[in-house]
Design a binder for these strands. Sequence first.
DNA 1: TGACTAAAAATTGTATACGATCTGAGATTG
DNA 2: CAATCTCAGATCGTATACAATTTTTAGTCA
Lengths: 247, 247
Amino acid sequence: MTKPVVTATLVGQKSSLHDIFALPPGRALDICLRLQTAILEHRLAPGLKLVEDEVGEIYGASRTVVRAALQALAHSGLVSIEKNRGAFVAKPTIREAHEVFQARALIEPAVARLAAEAITNEQLARLEAHLEAEHAALADGDMGKALMLSGGFHIEIADIADHRVFARMVRSLISRSSLIIALYWKRSDTACESHSHHALMEAFQARDADAAESIQKSHIIDLHSGLDLRKKQEGGTTLSEALGRAG
Amino acid sequence: MTKPVVTATLVGQKSSLHDIFALPPGRALDICLRLQTAILEHRLAPGLKLVEDEVGEIYGASRTVVRAALQALAHSGLVSIEKNRGAFVAKPTIREAHEVFQARALIEPAVARLAAEAITNEQLARLEAHLEAEHAALADGDMGKALMLSGGFHIEIADIADHRVFARMVRSLISRSSLIIALYWKRSDTACESHSHHALMEAFQARDADAAESIQKSHIIDLHSGLDLRKKQEGGTTLSEALGRAG
DNA sequence: TGACTAAAAATTGTATACGATCTGAGATTG
DNA sequence: CAATCTCAGATCGTATACAATTTTTAGTCA
């Protein structure tokens, strides 16, 4: 049962969650996080409608709370809300896909530099453990888990950089990347990814900020090039079916 | 009566507002924008408490709607919400001030480059008009207006770059900068600012992307250095006093 | 059959009500 | 007199109810 560890990282157990959603702790935040996890795990397909009553029923909360959660998710870009029509799992356009990866290519290398300059031994160990988990998932052929861990790796770096403004941006960009990958990923060999992360790891161990920055930049450009920006997947699943009763 | 034009730019008349707050059009968005304007015009001091009933009374809406608006503002970083305590106009810390300007120094030069590459003659004219208005405000000694226009200038550039992800980031960073300046600005000679904007304008006219990028970078570093990050202003005004009945 | 229309059902938008929590003034005590 | 305690008022958190809007369905007519 290693999954909870994964989701905790990607979803934001560290670096105070309410900082991400600007919501005080409470049931709304809970629902927010659960839905976010479900979306990032690709259990809720892009385009799926999130009916307020239905979500409330599943998590045992009233529409008031659910609405707050959905609104928060809309701000983070994982959900889009249309007037009088409701909330839907976001379905990034091809344009947005490009933009998100352009933004990542600008911001994450700078963040990697900061992280390389500030990283402690303890954080190094943690990051290495993360990398190993990622490697293991790849060996198992568990792609969903590997992708999740891959995102978590980037987020951990942002946390190490200890820059809240950047960290928040990175978190949002990576969440959206997860959706984008769900829709547009084409490349079969995800191995290169793990390789990039390994190279990054070495740069961190050497505290080589220049290397970290440049490796991260290549890595993200590489990811960007791994997208097929023509076809688009349709989302047909049903809500309670995907979430079950526990979510 | 030139102010509405100004606020319209800073607040986001262009580039579909609901994109900024991820809120569908409606009363919540209205309140959101009015409060944002009031905050950015420094009529609502950092730290001021925004009582839900009071805001609702002023704008003629129920708490339900007001809460949605406050939550949206919290996401954009202009308001902070504390559990069981309510919403307050955000009061950026010194650390956050540094971080916001570091982020601007990274992102805005890249955005300026994009804008220089894409700018049309029409947009050039618009931008020039904006610059003139800014110059006029400075000549009048109307600092509040000048600051507002200064922020608007940066936002227009982001809109010209036509990159929604960056534009949204820039908008959020500039909003927060407005608060930061309200709290920490020290320099008396705001003239240099106008000078920087002039230099940028020339780069745009020449479609010189390199120049635009580098000028923007220096400009933001310069702004950052114009902050005094020691003292902190206290906010004591009252809500309805600042907003009046019309807001 | 197919397209259009109208009524019914489902869903969202908003207001209101009530319990929970916080705040501050005044009483109490060492 | 200062510090603490208690309780009333203010304010927030959440559920529920009803109005407005959209979506679906059933029916009608060409």
